[in-house]
Every structure is written in C-alpha cells, then in structure tokens.
C-alpha cells in the first residue's frame, strides 16, 4: 500500500482537483484506492457526491479504526472509495496534540487499510500544522501543486525549510506546475527559476483550464465529462509520472 498526499499550504492551487483526478485514474488502472478528505471544507467529498455522517468524529479518527471503516463510502467508480470530510476535522490539530507521538498518529491509523487498499490519497487542508507533519511522516509522496507565481515560489521554499527543520525526508516532496498560463511572462519566468532551484519537479504542467473548474459543476472527475480535452491528457501524464515515482 502506498500513500500519496496532495498538499500545499496555499489554498486554491488545485490540490483537490489533483486528488480527485489522480484517484480516478488510479482506480481505473486497477488500484484499490481510498481517498481521504482531510480538509473540513470537504471539496473532494463534494466532487464525489459523498456526504459524511452528521455525528462529529471527536478524537475517534486517530484512535478507532473500526469507526473509520464505518464512514467509508464507495464512489460511483469501481475500485474507488472515499472517506468524506467532516466539519469536526478542523479539530485534528487538537486531537493529534493529545496523543503521545502526534506525527505517528496518522500512519498508525492508515496501517489498518493495508490489506484493503493499494493506494491511499490524502486530500490535505491548506495549513502547516500537527496534521501536516503527520501527513508528511506518513506519505510516500507529497504531491505539491505549484502555480508559477512569486508567492507560490515562496510557499514551496517554506515547505522545504519545514522539512529540513523537522528532519523529514525532502525526497518525498514532489512538486508540479498547476494552473499554468503560458501567455503570462511571470509564469514562464517562475517556471524557469523553480526548475533551476528544485530538480524534483515533475516534468508535466497542468494548464489553467475551464474544464478543471467545471468539475465542481459536474461534480465528477475530469475523465467523466472531458476525456477528449487537452487538459485531460495533461492530468493523465501527471498520473503516469506519479505512478512511476510511487
């Protein structure tokens, strides 16, 4: 079983779209896939039309694997399950701080899925916190969508610094360019700078595309309504690159 985190401390960069589409491709490729929506906003749950039960989770997420199993829902697509977000997930930092080794809390929980899934995808909230540390510790790969702008450059630098500071394995960080608008000079310049600075970038860029935005309207992964569009091919290449690195 491999664990892939879709993470950025910056919001609106395409984390959820990436998590949803990669999950769809993985499931289509025959991987038994579980997408865990860790973001209390529940955007990926919304895309998959999956709702959480009303009852709050309290601290049970990190303590009761059986309870976790009861919340898993099958997506409309074969091989794909979703653990939908709950608003109480906003308390994850507090829940984690209550356990002895917070960074290991998530890994312990996910271990129970080993026999049921080939791939776990974590759709992460845009924060840097106890939860993020647990995500970094647990994941085999941290997929980071980066919009090629100055602010995003800064955010990526901060992520590397954080990994160094907490002695985490920086090889896990796997950035790729997201929402790229080729006509913008600023994007082109930023891509050049970042590629020089970080060799870990996946050699696939996801263009800014209306179809990605339309995922919310369709409440479906890209492959279900835009499989003939160029952006679909880009996301497919991203999946192939991720698959090779996992």
């Amino acid at each position: 079983m491999k664990t892939l985190a879709c993470y950025s401390m910056k919001g609106g960069v395409g984390k959820t779209a990436t998590a949803v589409n990669i999950a769809w491709f993985a499931a289509r490729a025959g991987y038994k896939t579980l997408l865990i929506d860790l973001d209390p906003q529940g955007a990926s749950s919304f895309y998959f039309r999956v709702k959480s039960k009303k009852k709050p989770w309290d601290e049970k997420f990190f303590q009761d694997h059986e309870y976790l199993l009861k919340h898993i829902k099958e997506a409309d697509y074969e091989n794909l399950d979703v653990l939908p977000a709950h608003f109480s997930f906003r308390n994850f930092d507090i829940n984690l701080s209550d356990i002895s080794k917070p960074e290991k809390g998530l890994k312990k929980v996910l271990k129970g899925f080993k026999s049921s899934y080939d791939l776990i995808i974590l759709d992460c909230p845009p924060t840097i916190s106890n939860l993020s540390e647990a995500v970094f510790y647990t994941s085999d790969l941290v997929l980071v969508p980066v919009i090629p702008t100055t602010l995003s450059e800064r955010t990526l630098d901060q992520l590397y610094q954080y990994f160094d500071e907490y002695k985490l394995n920086t090889d896990k960080i796997t950035p790729f360019f997201s929402m790229v608008q080729k006509q913008k000079h600023m994007h082109a310049d930023s891509i050049t700078r970042l590629k020089e600075r970080y060799s870990s970038f996946i050699d696939v860029t996801i263009p800014f595309a209306a179809d990605l935005e339309k995922m919310g309207e369709h409440r479906q992964p890209l492959g279900e309504f835009a499989s003939g569009k160029p952006v679909f091919t880009h996301v497919q290449s991203l999946w192939q690159a991720v698959r090779e690195r996992l």
Binding site: H71, K73, D76, D81
Partner: peptide, 11 residues
C-alpha cells in the same frame, strides 16, 4: 427479468 442489486459501500 432477473434483477440483481448490489449496494455501494456506505449506502
């Protein structure tokens, strides 16, 4: 017609 129904997990 033989109708076979399979519930999705969680439903």
């Amino acid at each position: 017609c033989l109708l076979t129904a399979t519930a999705l997990r969680g439903y």
